[in-house]
Amino acid sequence: MENPYVPIEAVIKDVIVENPIIKTFVLKPEEPLKFSPGQFIMLTVPGVGESPFTPSSSCFETERVEVTVLRQSGGKVTSALHGMKPGDMVGVRGPFGHGYPLERFKGNEVYVVGGGVGMAPMRALMFALLHEADQYKHIILRYGARNPELRMYKELCKSWETDPRVDVVYTVDIADETWTHNVGVVTTIMKPEDIQDVKNAFSIGCGPPIMLRFMVPVLLKMGFAEEHMFFSLEKNMSCGMGLCGHCRIGNLYVCKDGADFSYDKIKDFPDVWA
C-alpha cells in the first residue's frame, strides 16, 4: 500500500522576492505534480516541519511548481523556507482537496477577489481561467494589498491591466506617492456594476479571514447566490487527508472537503472565519 505520509523530493530552482515578507519558490518536483487550481500541497522543510500551501503557478506546468510564501512571525516552517536558496531540497505531499469547480464556472462571469498573500492561489486560478478565457463569459479580478510595496506579481498584474480578456481593479489600504490605483480595502472596489448576470455569476475569494468575513455581505448585496460564493479557508491542515482531525470545522474537513467551500456550506459554523 502506498504511504501517503512520504513526501516526494523537490529542488528549489529559483527564489523570487515578491516583497520584504513574501517570496515565491520555484520548485522542480522529482516527478510531475498534477494539480488543479485551489488544491493545496503539504510542503516539508526537512527536519523542520510541514505546512499547507496552494500552488500559485499554472496547473499546466507540472514540472515547475511555484509556491508563494508569507513569512509568519514565529512561523517555524515559513521562516526556514525564507532562508532557503536555489539548489536546496524540500518535500512535497499532495495535492489535497478538490480545487475550484471550473466546469461549473464555464459560460458565466467569474469574479476573483484576492487579498494579501491570498492572491497566490488566485494567480493559479487566473492562469487556469485565462488558459481558456473564451469559455467564460467574463473574467474579473479585484486585488487588494496593504500597501504598494506589499503587492505581489507586479509585472503580471501590470500586464493584466491591458489584457482585453480580463477586467482588473487594484487597491491598497494605504497608498504612497507612486500609487495610481484605488485606495481602500478590497471590498471598496467591489461594485454591483462589475457583474451583469449576477444570479449566474461565481465569486472566488481568498485572503485573510477578516477580509473574507467582510466580503460576505458585499457579495450578497451585489446579488450573488450563496452556492456561487466560494471561499478558500485557512485552517490547521496537517495530514491533508482527513485523518488527523486538525482542520475540521463543524461537519467538514477543510483539507478533504475543501479547501474551497461555497458559502451555503460553511455559513452556519461560528468558527469559520476565526
Binding site: V77, P209, N236, C244, G245, I249, A274
Partner: peptide, 27 residues
C-alpha cells in the same frame, strides 16, 4: 536523513486549531 513522526494529539489543547497567521478557530 529526516523522519516524519506522528503522535496522538488532543483538541482540548489551545494550539490545536491555531494557524500560521495566529488566528485560532477555537480560542
Amino acid at each position: 536523513g529526516f523522519e516524519k513522526v506522528r503522535v496522538w494529539d488532543f483538541c482540548y489543547y489551545r494550539g490545536y486549531a491555531r494557524v500560521g497567521g495566529g488566528t485560532n478557530a477555537r480560542p
